[in-house]
Write a protein that binds this DNA or RNA. Structure first.
Lengths: 241, 241
DNA sequence: CGCTACTTTGATATTTTTCAATCTTGGTGG
DNA sequence: CCACCAAGATTGAAAAATATCAAAGTAGCG
């Protein structure tokens, strides 16, 4: 349930990976042609418009999803009314974590999205049968786990500009979210979404953004994109935890 | 890499049975006798004194660990000098997450501990061979992931007493950390550790503890234990996110 | 019994949240 | 094609809370 970034598909693709392997390289799932075919047999491809709910918290968890294209967010609404965005999901990210047969959060499309949907029971049967493929899934999950831990570090920070700087750096790691040519990161989510992800108020995010711009680190181009003006200093600020 | 608790696999598994051992309750790993034997063949049992380092950040990741008894913490020291405690590990928790062949944090014993140590390569080979067993591991990992997400919610809170209340509730969920008879939770870690886990300053934790006591929710008995005086109100405060 | 590490408590400074008002922008329909 | 509307975003001022700096108090261990 988290952003991935890097390569690292759930379903198809190629190379090496971390956790559980002394070797190591990128972070990608390695599947054979046969495995990809097996998966495609149980997968359903979906196209959904922006804002569409994919599943809701506490609903019966019957599927696991993988993003093909677009952006998805998962969140929980707390009793107080506060909303916590758990993750933004980019292409190749898996989502649909459940507990006791129920989803633990709500998933909603931010942009129009294309997804794979895997019936839980079929997928589980397939994975149990194919240890190698399951291992690739496990790598995926451990990757999410690392992300979640990075997020904990981010949330541990007290300064809003620093949190936002870290967030921007995270978005830059997304292949589909950063254009090297123009040095531009796209931020398809609203300020509210960012605030709910960073654990800040909407206003603080807005002010932090203004501050980053004032310092000459980034320059917002409309609400949904920002150009990185000084990646070195931005990185320093992000790392100066 | 975190505490366990609740029932609740992500995917399947209903029975009972703890990790690598017979008895059990809910959220446990189900292994057959044969599987347990296989695991024990590659596992090494370790006993370490309090404060002993189990592995250090960036060190070569060659093993996965499982807590048998005692308490372990994982943490990272950030450039600024701030320390972030990633998790407290109780019996049955797995730890040793790596990236690119290196550990991503430091693991240190808080109390004297007994551990299983599994050589990474052996374990990986075994898991790939045995899809069922690997599935149990996967459940473990997804469980950690949920924990990490809960933690994100905790860190999203702004009020120190609330965070501490959530922390106490977390500790109460640990079988080995809560005595129902006396309604007492043990807090073997230092205030600094708690602060580093909650993303607060040491002083704020101390003050929040005093506040909880003042409100009559809990009563500290020495530094390492607290009696729950009003579990209902404590739970409300913890949930009032 | 005394040291050392850990905690608590106090006062101030910093930062963010809140509350409120205004401004933008994207979409819609006339 | 343009004006209008509503959701989203920004900015300001005051209030609340935690961090920080500093000092004193405790507890456990040798």
């Amino acid at each position: 349930m988290t952003r991935s970034r890097r390569p690292a598909p759930a379903v198809g693709s190629e190379k090496a990976q971390p956790f559980l392997t002394p070797t190591a390289a990128s972070d990608t799932v390695v599947l054979t042609e046969r495995q990809r075919i097996e998966l495609s047999k149980i997968a359903l491809r979906l196209r959904l418009p922006a804002r569409k709910f994919i599943y809701r918290e506490d609903g019966p968890a019957q599927s696991i999803y993988s993003v093909i294209d677009g952006l998805v967010k998962t969140y929980r609404d707390l009793p107080s009314g506060r909303r916590v965005v758990g993750s933004f999901l980019f292409p190749r990210d898996l989502f649909g974590l459940a507990q006791n047969g129920h989803y633990v959060n709500t998933a909603q499309a931010i942009s129009p999205v294309t997804l794979y949907r895997f019936p839980l029971t079929d997928l589980v049967a397939l994975l149990k049968r194919d240890g190698e493929m399951q291992f690739q899934f496990m790598l995926k999950v451990t990757h999410e786990l690392r992300d979640a831990q990075r997020r904990a570090i981010l949330l541990g920070r007290r300064d809003a500009p620093g949190r936002l700087a870290m967030f921007v750096m995270l978005m830059m790691e997304e292949p589909s979210g950063f254009d090297r040519e123009s040095s531009t990161v796209s931020l398809p989510m609203t300020r509210s979404d960012i605030a709910a992800f960073l654990g800040l108020s909407l206003e603080s995010v807005s002010r932090a953004a203004a501050e980053l711009q004032r310092r000459g680190l980034i320059e917002f181009q409309g609400r949904r994109a920002a150009r990185i003006l000084d990646q070195v200093r931005l990185g320093k600020l992000a790392a100066a935890v």
